[in-house]
């Protein structure tokens, strides 16, 4: 009798074990699959365009994307109604075309009206970690007015490291230490007949921020602060504006204490201190195109 009991117990144990082994299969068969994110995820977009206003942003174009930009910076609003608050003044205009070589590297070319500047630019994302991005930006510019200067004396260079990240779901900040060099920086005469000493080399720290009001509207601001020796009569630059994003376009409307369109020239040659509150307004339109990727 004891023998039969042991056999029955063995059978029950076998049955229970077999049932247990079927449970994982059974639950998989009747349930949903576990949802898994795709291995490759797109980089987060810190700013809505590759430029905050004048400063480059950590945002890069995706591979195969073209970004055409039309940048206008008008005269000072303080010029009054008779000058339609700066619209009658000579506007600095830059046309630019940037292209995403890869998802993290972009090339660009632009041409600005003031000093007939052609600028080429390269931006490469170096890191993208935990909501923070690091990018390197380099630009070379050539001034092309017919003023008798040698080609080499028309050149300027600007390199910066861009570090940007999300402080919250809506707030993005960026810091951009930079070095700028003008091969030839002639001293200037001031209106009183004095001489303004110009510097060839400039060290600066740019800071920028974006605050997302809605999915379509953001507030932006940037400040270019020079460090160390600066050219006489020049100043730091403050710009602030609104970005409106709508289906492949980004419209940037802003006020700036500088009319320069490239970071090189804004850092080296801006002459209106932000403390004077004498801003000019401007806009920049970005239009993205695909190239059949």
């Amino acid at each position: 009798m004891a023998k039969w009991s042991r056999q029955s117990k063995f059978a029950r144990v076998c049955f229970m074990m077999a049932m247990l082994t079927t449970l994982p299969f059974a639950s998989e068969a009747v349930g949903q699959m576990a949802r898994e994110r795709a291995a490759e995820q797109p980089a987060e977009e810190m700013f809505w365009s590759p430029a905050v206003i004048i400063l480059p942003s950590t945002t890069s174009l995706e591979a195969g994307d073209l970004d055409f930009t039309i940048y206008h910076a008008f005269g000072p609003v303080s010029s009054g109604f008779n000058n339609l608050f700066g619209l009658d003044a000579a506007a600095n205009i830059r046309f630019g075309l940037d292209y995403g070589l890869t998802d993290g590297i972009m090339l660009g070319l632009g041409r600005s009206r003031f000093r007939k500047v052609w600028d080429g630019r390269l931006k490469a994302r170096l890191a993208d970690l935990a909501g923070w991005q690091v990018a390197a930006f380099y630009s070379a510019a050539l001034e092309t007015p017919e003023d008798g200067r040698k080609t080499v004396d028309r050149l300027s260079y600007h390199g910066s490291l861009l570090v940007g990240g999300k402080v919250s779901d809506r707030l993005v900040v960026q810091v951009a230490p930079a070095f700028t060099r003008f091969v030839f920086a002639p001293d200037q005469l001031d209106p009183s007949g004095g001489v303004l000493i110009s510097q060839n080399n400039h060290v600066s720290v740019g800071t920028a921020t974006r605050y997302e009001l809605t999915s379509m509207v953001s507030l932006t601001a940037e400040y270019l602060a020079r460090v160390g020796n600066t050219s006489d009569g020049t100043s730091n630059v403050l710009s602030f504006g609104v970005d409106v994003e709508t289906g492949g376009h980004v419209f940037q409307m802003f006020f700036s204490s500088s009319q320069w369109t490239t970071p090189h020239h804004a850092i080296a040659w801006s002459r209106t201190p932000p403390s004077e509150m004498d801003f000019g307004w401007g806009f920049n339109v970005h239009r993205a195109f695909g190239t059949g990727r």
Partner: peptide, 17 residues
């Protein structure tokens, strides 16, 4: 199921939008 971040419309900016 599909991870919606993998959708590609041919323009990166439009994908982000």
């Amino acid at each position: 199921y599909v991870d919606l971040n993998t959708l590609d419309t041919g323009i990166g900016k439009r994908d982000k939008d």
